[in-house]
Design a protein around this nucleic acid. Sequence first.
DNA 1: CCTTAATCGAGACGGTACGTCCTGTCTTGTT
DNA 2: AACAAGACAGGACGTACCGTCTCGATTAAGG
Lengths: 188, 188, 188, 188
Amino acid sequence: MHGRPRDPALDAAIRKAALDIVTEQGYKRLTMEGVAARSRVSKQALYRRYASKGELLLAALDAFAEEVLPAPDTGSLREDLLFLVRAAFAFHRSSNSAFSQAVAAEAAQGPAFARQALEKVINPRRDIFRAVFARARERGELLCSDDDLLIDLVYGPLWYALLFNFDRLTDAYAESLTDAVLAAARQA
Amino acid sequence: MHGRPRDPALDAAIRKAALDIVTEQGYKRLTMEGVAARSRVSKQALYRRYASKGELLLAALDAFAEEVLPAPDTGSLREDLLFLVRAAFAFHRSSNSAFSQAVAAEAAQGPAFARQALEKVINPRRDIFRAVFARARERGELLCSDDDLLIDLVYGPLWYALLFNFDRLTDAYAESLTDAVLAAARQA
Amino acid sequence: MHGRPRDPALDAAIRKAALDIVTEQGYKRLTMEGVAARSRVSKQALYRRYASKGELLLAALDAFAEEVLPAPDTGSLREDLLFLVRAAFAFHRSSNSAFSQAVAAEAAQGPAFARQALEKVINPRRDIFRAVFARARERGELLCSDDDLLIDLVYGPLWYALLFNFDRLTDAYAESLTDAVLAAARQA
Amino acid sequence: MHGRPRDPALDAAIRKAALDIVTEQGYKRLTMEGVAARSRVSKQALYRRYASKGELLLAALDAFAEEVLPAPDTGSLREDLLFLVRAAFAFHRSSNSAFSQAVAAEAAQGPAFARQALEKVINPRRDIFRAVFARARERGELLCSDDDLLIDLVYGPLWYALLFNFDRLTDAYAESLTDAVLAAARQA
DNA sequence: CCTTAATCGAGACGGTACGTCCTGTCTTGTT
DNA sequence: AACAAGACAGGACGTACCGTCTCGATTAAGG
């Protein structure tokens, strides 16, 4: 038998509360207790859905996951890449950086979270690069066959900067990085 | 100023306890309370030395910092790089990965820690690459003048994998990555 | 008024579950939640019948209430009293003591429960004594006209012992107590 | 070694809070959480001292335990008894009845508590009767040698009334009860 | 030699959050 | 209607750490 169904309004309220707290106070201050209080939801109802801060964070991340990700097609690999890298930098430079850092912190501490973040947040963004690379390959602009490596060359330095050298995420760096990736891309 | 001097044996006991707890139970379980208990040191004495888990972690990291970092000089940039990248991968693949992840988690959550980690752990390792690049430049093997960018191309993907895709840190990947860096290095 | 009639099988199941839990785990562990779970009855159906632990306890007590209460008639007041006092002691000494204590605990905390317990459990037992006293009075064995006082002299010490000195409920004590009551009974 | 000693001011604050809550809101509303909040004491400090509501109640009862118990000596057993019985009734009729009921409830549910209550609250009051009986015995007013039985005849009906028939605790009843006890006392 | 001051262990303290349990009410669909 | 199932707000539970604070007992260096 079925019992009373879960109230979807609560899911929304919880996600919103979590989102607000992270952006306003940072991930460190994100607390099950606090989310319950802010969303006016009982702790029980909260724990029924999310057993940990990590799961809660992933749920809150859905807001970003649903974003339509832009896939540029300028006809030039360099232009496409530059656009994407700049956009990625801009995203992490914005107020969303609290989330990026939360994701990093959580991923560092649990492979379970890492896997889910990969699937929900990381891979969709990598796929856009894949599409760009596919088109460039048709045009003959790309000799390297290892898309994953090239994408790592973009996102690696990005998350690395996010961890240790936040200020590095400038537009100038975006351009240098893009050219470095291009050098690798043109090499068989 | 006089009074009883601090007992250096306590420093050692504390660092050892912290180290043991992190490797045995992971960084999440590292607790000031737990370290005090395990090292048979009073909380007071502990807090006198390290005001936070972060400082404690950095102190425990000194064990690694004191390691002699090997600086290869094979006469070939590719060989030197390959050696360093493989060594770095090996280090993070080992049981020390708990520490790498702890550093990542802590850095993600506080620029103060990030800065200290940078100085104590990250930059010394970057400097080794710098030396290698300097020699290669003299030999004419290196056109790119931006050492930091090249080093980011190495360590970026490494930490990125550490966060999201641990299994990626294979020797094969080390080689691919090295060649990508070389491509960027040879480009003006 | 129509609709589906209440299932009497549920009443039985609930009472049994409550009874079992009290005897097995004590009154403290008696929980509406637990009774519902054990009796495989929904909490709704449970609350429809019994609005509180007290009501539930009283319902469970019906099992005892339906017992045929023996009314001795030996021709001697002392013999009759002794029989009743011993029987009462024996009852409370048995495994039913969990119930007696539950009744005491609940009565202590709510006059509402106390009144219901009085009516359903306490008074019926007092009435047996009344009958015995009535016969004794006819035989001229009884000068005291205050039955309630005499009965208090029996049940008072019994419940008192139940609260504070359980071990006191021996047969020897039953005899002493009976003789004390007799002394009071023979006095105008 | 010793560590920081417990702050005795906290003991006082806790006892006061517990006392106030019980008299103001009844024993049911007495909550470890509530006592901690009202006494501005951390839950930890509270639990360090009292592991349960029962222990807390006993501690709060110290206020009464320290009371000087009056021991009448009128030269007449009846007068002495009457005085004591009336005083006892008056005590339980007063606002302290909340405590009496709390004690009853708690004693009913745990022999551990019962034993402690016996020692701290019950027995000291019984001892006063013992003293009165001793004097009466010297005067030849007392033939019964079983003090405990006689005291049960007093306190039994009292607690019995406390549980089931609160209104019974009148001065008239005190007199009837006294006379009944006297009848038993005069009997060998 | 003997203060003097910072150290040490032990552990109490006010807080905050944890994750669980129970209460009493409610909302489903099913009988 | 009553029923099983189970979600819901609310409140209390007992525990774990946090960082700070007494205690009494050491331990040197400086007077």
